[in-house]
Computed example of a mutant assay.
Amino acid sequence: MIPALAVLATTSTGLLVGVELSVAVVVNPILRALPIGAMIDGRAHGARMLGRTMPPWYIGSTTLIAGFSIAAWGTLQAVLALAAAGLLLATVLLSVLVLVPINNRSSTWTAASHPTDWRVQQQRWDRLHGVRVVLLLAALSLVVIAAVAA
C-alpha cells in the first residue's frame, strides 16, 4: 500500500507542480508579450479555467500525501511526507487568502472593461504565484525523497 500511495502522491503532486510552473515560466510570459487587450482576455480565460480545475487537484494531492504519511507512520517516509503536506497546505492558504481573490477579480476582466490598477494586481499575483511555485517544488522534492526512502 505504501508504494502505491507514494507513486500516486508523487505523480499527482508532480503534475500539479508542472502546471503551476508552466503558468509562471511559459504561459504568463507569452500572454505578457501580447497586446494588452489580448493579454487581459487570455489571463481572464486562464483564471476561469484553472480556477475550476486547480482546487480539486490541490485537495487530491494533499490528501494523497497525507494518506502516504499516515500509511508510513513512524518512519522517515512519514516525516518527509508530513512536511510535504505542510508545504502543500501553506500553498493552499496562500492561494485562498491572496491569490484566489485576485484570480476571481481578474476572471471577469475584458479588454474593454478592467480596473485602472489591473497591471498592479496581475504583477502582485505573478510575484505571489512565484512564491507558491517555490513552495510546491519544495513539497514535491520532499514527496520524491519520501517515496524513495526506505
Rank of each mutant, 00 (worst) to 15 (best):
residue 14 G to Y: 05
residue 14 G to H: 10
residue 14 G to P: 13
residue 16 L to G: 12
residue 16 L to Y: 04
residue 17 V to F: 01
residue 19 V to Y: 03
residue 20 E to V: 03
residue 24 A to G: 11
residue 25 V to H: 03
residue 27 V to Y: 12
residue 27 V to Q: 04
residue 27 V to E: 06
residue 28 N to P: 07
residue 29 P to I: 00
residue 31 L to M: 06
residue 31 L to A: 12
residue 31 L to P: 13
residue 32 R to G: 06
residue 34 L to V: 02
residue 36 I to C: 05
residue 37 G to R: 02
residue 39 M to R: 12
residue 39 M to Q: 14
residue 39 M to D: 13
residue 40 I to F: 10
residue 41 D to A: 12
residue 42 G to M: 05
residue 45 H to N: 08
residue 45 H to R: 10
residue 46 G to D: 06
residue 47 A to F: 11
residue 48 R to V: 08
residue 49 M to A: 11
residue 49 M to D: 09
residue 50 L to Y: 14
residue 54 M to L: 14
residue 54 M to N: 04
residue 54 M to S: 03
residue 58 Y to I: 07
residue 59 I to V: 15
residue 60 G to A: 05
residue 60 G to H: 01
residue 60 G to V: 03
residue 61 S to T: 09
residue 62 T to G: 11
residue 62 T to P: 01
residue 64 L to P: 02
residue 64 L to Y: 11
residue 65 I to C: 09
residue 65 I to Y: 10
residue 67 G to E: 10
residue 68 F to C: 08
residue 69 S to V: 04
residue 70 I to D: 00
residue 70 I to R: 00
residue 70 I to A: 07
residue 71 A to E: 05
residue 73 W to S: 12
residue 73 W to E: 02
residue 73 W to M: 04
residue 76 L to A: 15
residue 77 Q to A: 15
residue 77 Q to Y: 06
residue 79 V to M: 13
residue 79 V to I: 14
residue 83 A to Y: 09
residue 84 A to K: 12
residue 84 A to G: 15
residue 85 A to K: 08
residue 85 A to M: 14
residue 86 G to E: 05
residue 88 L to D: 12
residue 88 L to S: 15
residue 89 L to D: 10
residue 90 A to G: 08
residue 92 V to Y: 02
residue 92 V to I: 15
residue 96 V to Y: 12
residue 99 L to H: 04
residue 99 L to V: 10
residue 100 V to L: 04
residue 101 P to R: 01
residue 102 I to E: 02
residue 103 N to T: 12
residue 104 N to D: 15
residue 104 N to V: 02
residue 104 N to W: 01
residue 105 R to W: 03
residue 106 S to M: 13
residue 106 S to H: 10
residue 107 S to M: 06
residue 108 T to C: 04
residue 109 W to K: 02
residue 109 W to Q: 02
residue 114 H to R: 04
residue 116 T to Q: 05
residue 117 D to I: 11
residue 118 W to C: 07
residue 119 R to A: 10
residue 119 R to K: 08
residue 120 V to Y: 00
residue 121 Q to S: 11
residue 121 Q to M: 15
residue 121 Q to F: 00
residue 122 Q to M: 05
residue 122 Q to W: 07
residue 122 Q to V: 04
residue 123 Q to G: 04
residue 123 Q to S: 03
residue 124 R to I: 09
residue 125 W to E: 06
residue 125 W to Q: 06
residue 126 D to R: 09
residue 126 D to Q: 13
residue 126 D to T: 15
residue 127 R to H: 07
residue 128 L to Q: 11
residue 128 L to H: 08
residue 128 L to W: 11
